[in-house]
Design a protein around this nucleic acid. Structure first.
Length: 839
RNA sequence: GCGGACGUGGCGGAACGGUAGACGCUGGGGACUUAAAAUCCUCUUCCCGUAAGGGAGUGCGGGUUCAAAUCCCGCCGUCCGCACCA
C-alpha cells in the first residue's frame, strides 16, 4: 500500500466502479424518501470552468449527503444547448452549429466525469435534441391553445448588416456588437407569452419561498413592480380630430391639485395625431425615438417636451386647463403612456416645469402651517399632509389618495387600479439554432398550429451561414408547406424560441422522460419540486421567473400539480482571480507571470507586471484557470475540497495555488490516518466527545449549506485524531472521519474505506449518528469578567449552580486584584458560560 | 435616484447578545535529512514588557445593556440589482 494517495489512479477506478454499479441511478419506484438536487445545467461552450466546478461540487455534496441519509436522490445533468455561440462558430469557422455543439458536449461530459459527481447520467439530455425540443413544441401549442401565447408587433434592435435581431446586451454604443453597424429600431411581428397574467400570482408565491435567498425574492418583487394608484381621464377641451380624452395613471392621486401639465409618450396616439398635422411635432417625435436606450444616455438625457396646443380640463375643477406636451421621458409601455405632472412633488416633473416655465405648486407639506412655503430647489417627494387641495386639506397623503379614488369612482372619471412593471415575455428569435416555433402562417387561415402528429418540427440540417440573416428564412423546402387547416400554400414560422424557454421546464423532463409526451405527471410529481437548486445569482430574475411562470402555466392547464418548481434555492458566489497587466496595458494570464519578491513579472520578458484587482474569472481579463490541468496535478478530491473551503459558498472564492495545495495536503493527511490506523482497544472519552460533536456539527453545516464550516470541523477532527494515542475510539474515529468526508472527497473516501477493510462502497454507507449526551463536556470553562472585561477563565464542573459559580469567580486571585477591596454591586451568572462581576 | 448586501489580523474567514480572531493560507523559528521534497513541532491582531502582566482593538461617531463584531440611530466606504416606471 502506497504511503501517498494516488488520486489519478483512485479517481479513475472508483468512477468506473460507480458507473458499473449504476450507483447514482435515481429510482422513482423506490420506497425511500425522495430528494431532487439540481444545479443549473451548463451551456456547452466546450470547456468546463471553475464556476462549473464550484457549482456542481456544492450540489454533489448535498446529493451524496442525502443518499447517505437514506434518501433516493435524483441528481441529473444535461445541456442547455441552443444559443448564439454555436451560430457564431458556424459563421466564423464554417462548422455546423449542431456538430460544434455535440462535440462540445462530448468533451465537457468527459471533463465533468473526471470530477466524480454523483450524477444520474442515464437521464442526460441536450435541449438541441429533437427528442427534447419536440416536446417543448407540444407544450408551446398547449399554451397557444390555452390563450397564453399571442403575436403582436414589437420593436426590436435590428442589425441591418447581419440582418438579425440583437438583444439589448448586444447593442454597444448604439452599434451591433458583431457588425459594428448602427442599430435600427424595427417593428416585427413577434410571439409573446402572457406572463403578465400571472404577475400577481408570481408575486404572491414569493412569500412561500422560505428557502430562497431574501435578495432574489426582492429582485423578483421589484421586477414584477406592482404599484397601486388611480387611472383616470382628462377631458380634452375643444377636442379636434376625435381625440376626446387623455387617460393617465398615477401612484399619487393625493397630489392631483398640484398638477400643471399632461405629458404623453412619442408613440401615444395623441402624439401621433399631432405629428400627422404638424411638421415640428413630427420632428420632435422622431427625435425622441432616435434617442438611445442605454442607461447612461437616459441618465444624462435632458427632459424635453413639445407643446401640442391641446388643453385638458382638470377633473375636479372644470375651469382649470392644463397644457398637453409630448415628452421624451414618458414611456409608452408603462401605465397608459401618459401622465400628469406635479412639479412640486416629483423630481422629473420639477425639472420639466422649470425648463418650460410651468407652475410649481405645493400641495403636500409637513404641517398645515407650512402650506404657503414655496418649493425649494428640489421636488418634495415624501408623503405628508395635503394642503392647497380643496377638500383634501389636512388629510394625510394616504387618506387623500383614498379620497380622490373614492370620488373618481363615484363620479365615473377614474378608478383605483394596479400597475405592474412586468411585461409579457417576447420569445421570438430570428435565429437558426433554437427550437422552431411550431406554427404555420396561412394567407387565408392566419397562424395555424402545426398538427401534433407532425411534431417535432425538426431544424433542417442543410443550411448555410454564408449570407447574413436567418438561414431558415431562405430554406424554401423547409419553409414552404401546406396549411394544416385549408391545405393551401403556406409558410412555416421561421423564428425560433428564446433559449430561456428551453430552461423553463428541463427540470421536469429530468424527473420524467417518456418518449410520447413531455413528461408523465405522476412520475414527475414523485420528485418535484426540486429540493435544492443551485446556480449563479445572474439568473435571479429571468430564468427563475420564467421557470416559475412556466410551471404555473402548466398547472393552469392541468398538466402538473405544483406551482413552485424550486423549493430551495441557493446562489453561489463566483470564482475569482487576481488580474495582471503588462506595461502596454494588455492582460496577462496567471501562467504567464511569476512572483518577484513583492512584485510580479512577466516570465518571458522579465518585464514588471501590474497586479490588478481580484475579479471574476473571464476570458477578456485572461485571469481564468483551466480546471483540467489542476485535475491532472491534484486529483478530483483536492479540487472539490478547495471549492468548499475557506469562502462561504454565497461569496466569491478566490482561486489560489496555495489554496489547492492546502486541500491536497488534507487529502494526504486523511489517507495517512486511514492507512496507519490499526484496530486497538480502550476508550478515549475526550476524542469520543470531539467525534460526536463533529458528526453533529458537520451534518448541521451541510444542511445549512455552510460547507466552509463543515470543512473547518473536519480539519479540527483530523488534528484531534492525529494527536490522540491509539485506542478503540481512535480507530473508530478514523472510520467516522472518512464517512464525514465522503460527500466532499468521495474517491479518497472509497479508497480509505477499502483500506480499512470495510465492506461495500462508502457511497452506499449510512451517514454516522451521534449521541447527544456526548455533545457536552463534564468540565466547562467559565469566563470571568469584572465590569464586562475578561479577567480570568476557570475550569468548573458542568451544571454548577449560580451561588457556587459566583463563589468560584470571587475566589480568583485575578478578580480580587481587579476588585482591589471594592465589594461587588451585582454579579451576573450565565450557567456554564460566564460570571460577570459588576463593581 | 430607488432597493439590497457587506465592512473583523498580512490574506480567505469563525464567533445562540456572553472568552473576538475557530479553521485554512501566508510568514518566522525549530526537528528529521548528506541535501532537498514530503512530514512533524512551534510562534504569528497591534502596542508596552525578558517575563509575569497590562493596555488597545471588529470602517467612523453616538446609544441601549451587567455585557455589543452581533441590537438601535447617524455618517463613511465597497459591491450587487433596478432605473425617465408616473
Amino acid at each position: 500500500m502506497s504511503s501517498r494517495f494516488d488520486a489519478a489512479d483512485a479517481d479513475r477506478r472508483w468512477q468506473a466502479r460507480w458507473e458499473e454499479a449504476r450507483s447514482f441511478r435515481a429510482d422513482s419506484s423506490s420506497s425511500k424518501p425522495k430528494t431532487y438536487v439540481l444545479e443549473m445545467f451548463p451551456y456547452p461552450s466546450g470547456r468546463i470552468h471553475m464556476g462549473h466546478v464550484r457549482n456542481y461540487t456544492m450540489g454533489d455534496v448535498i446529493a451524496r449527503y442525502r443518499r447517505m441519509q437514506g434518501h433516493e436522490v435524483l441528481h441529473p445533468m444535461g445541456w442547455d444547448a441552443f444559443g448564439m455561440p454555436a451560430e457564431n462558430a458556424a459563421m466564423e469557422r464554417g462548422v455546423h452549429p449542431g456538430e460544434w455543439t455535440w462535440a462540445n458536449i462530448r468533451s465537457m461530459r468527459e471533463q465533468l466525469k473526471r470530477l466524480g459527481f454523483a450524477l444520474d447520467w442515464e437521464r442526460e439530455f441536450a435541449t438541441c435534441d429533437p427528442a427534447y425540443y419536440g416536446h417543448e413544441q407540444a407544450l408551446f401549442l398547449d399554451l397557444f391553445e390555452a390563450g397564453l401565447v399571442y403575436r403582436r408587433e414589437s420593436e426590436v434592435n435590428w442589425d441591418p448588416v447581419d440582418m438579425t435581431v440583437l438583444a439589448n446586451e448586444q447593442v454597444i454604443d448604439g452599434k451591433g456588437w458583431r457588425s459594428g453597424a448602427v442599430v435600427e429600431r424595427r417593428k416585427l411581428a413577434q410571439w409573446f407569452l402572457r406572463i403578465t397574467e400571472f404577475g400577481e400570482d408570481l408575486l404572491e408565491g414569493l412569500g412561500s419561498l422560505e428557502d430562497w435567498p431574501e435578495k432574489v425574492r426582492l429582485m423578483q418583487e421589484n421586477w414584477i413592480g406592482k404599484s397601486r394608484g388611480l387611472q383616470f381621464r382628462f377631458r380634452v377641451a375643444e377636442a379636434p380630430d376625435g381625440i376626446e380624452a387623455v387617460e393617465v395613471f398615477t401612484t399619487r392621486p393625493d397630489t392631483i391639485f398640484g398638477s400643471s401639465f399632461v405629458a404623453v409618450a412619442a408613440d401615444h396616439p395623441i402624439a401621433q395625431a399631432t405629428a400627422a398635422s404638424n411638421e415640428k411635432a413630427a420632428e420632435f417625435v422622431a427625435e425622441c425615438k432616435a434617442g438611445g436606450t442605454s442607461a447612461a444616455e437616459l441618465e444624462t438625457a435632458e427632459k424635453k417636451g413639445f407643446r401640442t396646443g391641446l388643453e385638458v380640463v382638470h377633473p375636479l375643477d372644470s375651469s382649470w386647463r392644463l397644457p398637453v406636451y409630448i415628452a421624451n421621458f414618458v414611456l409608452m409601455d408603462y401605465g397608459t403612456g401618459a401622465l400628469f405632472g406635479v412639479p412640486g412633488h416629483d423630481q422629473r416633473d420639477y425639472e420639466f416645469a422649470t425648463k418650460y416655465g410651468l407652475p410649481i405648486k405645493r400641495v403636500v407639506a409637513q404641517s398645515a402651517d407650512a402650506a404657503s412655503e414655496p418649493i425649494g430647489s428640489e421636488a418634495e417627494t415624501a408623503p405628508a399632509i395635503a394642503v392647497n387641495s380643496a377638500f383634501l386639506d389636512g388629510l394625510t397623503s394616504d387618506e387623500a389618495a383614498a379620497e380622490v379614488i373614492r370620488r373618481a369612482e363615484a363620479a365615473g372619471w377614474g378608478k383605483g387600479t394596479i400597475q405592474y412593471r412586468l411585461r409579457d415575455w417576447g420569445v421570438s428569435r430570428q435565429r437558426y439554432w433554437g427550437t422552431p416555433i411550431p406554427i404555420i402562417h396561412c394567407p387565408t387561415c392566419g397562424a395555424v398550429p402545426v398538427g401534433r402528429e407532425q411534431l417535432p418540427v425538426v431544424l433542417p440540417d442543410d443550411i448555410e451561414f454564408d449570407k447574413p440573416g436567418n438561414p431558415l428564412d431562405r430554406h424554401r423546402t423547409w419553409k414552404d408547406v401546406e396549411c394544416p387547416r385549408c391545405g393551401g400554400a403556406a409558410t412555416r414560422e421561421t423564428d425560433t424560441l428564446d433559449t430561456f424557454v428551453d430552461s423553463s421546464w428541463y427540470f421536469i423532463r429530468f424527473a420524467s422522460q417518456p418518449s410520447d409526451q413531455p413528461f408523465d405527471r405522476t412520475e414527475a410529481e414523485k420528485w418535484l419540486p426540486v429540493a435544492q437548486y443551485i446556480g449563479g445569482v445572474e439568473h435571479a430574475i429571468l430564468h427563475l421567473l420564467y421557470a416559475r411562470f412556466w410551471t404555473r402555466a402548466l398547472r393552469k392547464l392541468g398538466e402538473i400539480g405544483i406551482d413552485e418548481p424550486f423549493k430551495g434555492l441557493f446562489t453561489q458566489g463566483m470564482v475569482t482571480h487576481e488580474t495582471y497587466r503588462a506595461g502596454d496595458g494588455s492582460w496577462l494570464s496567471p501562467n504567464e507571470v511569476t512572483r518577484n519578491g513583492d512584485d510580479w513579472m512577466h516570465i518571458e520578458s522579465g518585464e514588471p507586471v501590474t497586479a490588478g484587482r481580484v475579479e471574476k474569472m473571464s476570458k477578456s481579463k485572461r485571469n481564468t484557470v483551466d480546471p483540467e490541468p489542476i485535475l491532472d496535478k491534484y486529483g478530483a478530491d483536492a479540487v472539490r475540497w478547495f471549492m468548499l473551503s475557506d469562502s462561504p459558498p454565497e461569496r466569491d472564492l478566490e482561486w489560489s495555488e496555495s489554496g489547492i495545495e492546502g486541500a491536497s495536503r488534507f487529502v494526504q493527511r486523511v489517507w495517512r490516518l486511514a492507512t496507519g490506523s490499526k484496530a486497538a482497544s480502550g476508550e478515549d472519552l475526550d476524542l469520543k466527545r470531539k467525534l460526536h460533536r463533529t458528526v453533529s456539527a458537520v451534518g448541521e453545516a451541510i444542511e445549512a449549506l455552510q460547507f466552509n464550516k463543515a470543512v473547518a470541523q473536519l480539519y479540527e477532527l483530523t488534528t484531534a485524531i492525529e494527536k490522540a494515542k491509539p485506542s478503540g475510539t481512535r480507530h473508530e474515529a478514523v472510520r467516522t472521519l472518512i464517512l464525514l468526508a465522503a460527500p466532499a472527497a468521495p474517491h479518497l473516501a472509497e479508497e480509505a474505506w477499502a483500506a480499512l477493510g470495510s465492506s461495500g462502497m462508502i457511497t452506499d454507507a449510512q451517514w454516522p449518528a451521534y449521541d447527544p449526551a456526548l455533545l457536552v463536556d463534564d468540565e466547562v470553562t467559565l469566563a470571568v469578567q469584572v465590569n464586562g472585561k475578561l479577567r480570568d477563565t476557570l475550569s468548573a464542573p458542568r451544571g454548577l449552580d449560580r451561588a457556587a459559580a459566583e463563589a468560584l469567580a470571587l475566589a480568583s486571585e485575578k478578580v480580587q486584584r481587579q476588585l482591589n477591596g471594592v465589594s461587588p454591586r451585582k454579579v451576573i451568572v450565565v450557567p456554564d458560560r460566564l460570571v460577570n462581576i459588576v463593581a
